[in-house]
Amino acid sequence: MEDIRKRAKQLLEAKTVDVVIGYGEGYGKKVKAIFVRKPEDADKLIYDERCTQNIGVYLTKHEVKHFGKAAIVASVPVMRTILQLCSENQLKEDDVLTLGITLEGKFLEFPTYRTLENFLANGVQPLTESDKELMAKIDAMSISERWNFWTAELSKCIKCYACRSSCPMCYCNRCMVDYNQPQWVSVPSTEIGNIEWHLMRAMHLAGRCVNCGECGRACPVDLPIHLLTFKASEEAKINFSAVAGLSMAMPSTLSTYKPNDKENFIK
């Protein structure tokens, strides 16, 4: 924690960066994202086991971009977020400085995205035990059981779109559900409309999800919706050997075609 504060202070003093995005104390025992722009505020930065939010979501916000060059306190999912955003043309190479925290909790600075790639090649964050358990349970279900499980779960969705807001990959200016000419997905929370939304979200994130699980944590009604995108990532890995957020120039999984593809159906 001290390392982060010290380094943030240095960076701001030297004006290497204009803002450090990190975690600070919030209300009660909660943490919140803070945007440190003055060296003397660097002491407000904290990092502990409560800091699970993927603050990479702020990197594409134009209010944050407006601050100037940013450094970010980055756990492994945040690092993957940075590389994936760069792949998708949302960040320019090396325009964010990464103050990384390894899976073991060690502080490590990454001056370039190339160094991030090298670091992430050694492994990424594993699924949590509870996610693994639930995923295995769902995998074991028959198709109809699975359908019933998800319709029951998704019927509780209140369409607050917290999942969308918390997701760093949902950076569109206008989401497809906000598109009303024509209105593809129904506005109110209805059984079919909820399913439409969550299926669409999973498809839009297939091959792009960095497995931070933020959507599931953000959900106010505790739906395990992050497992939908996790599963889509798994499928993308199995079928296309594509893992998001490991490279700053990954071709987009669902829209890339190779003339020498060994699968003949695609030609």
Partner: peptide
């Protein structure tokens, strides 16, 4: 402006 387009420039359309 300031959005200019709802396109966010992800260029996923380019390879298809």
């Amino acid at each position: 402006p300031p959005a200019f387009s709802t396109c966010v420039g992800c260029f996923m359309c380019q390879p298809v």
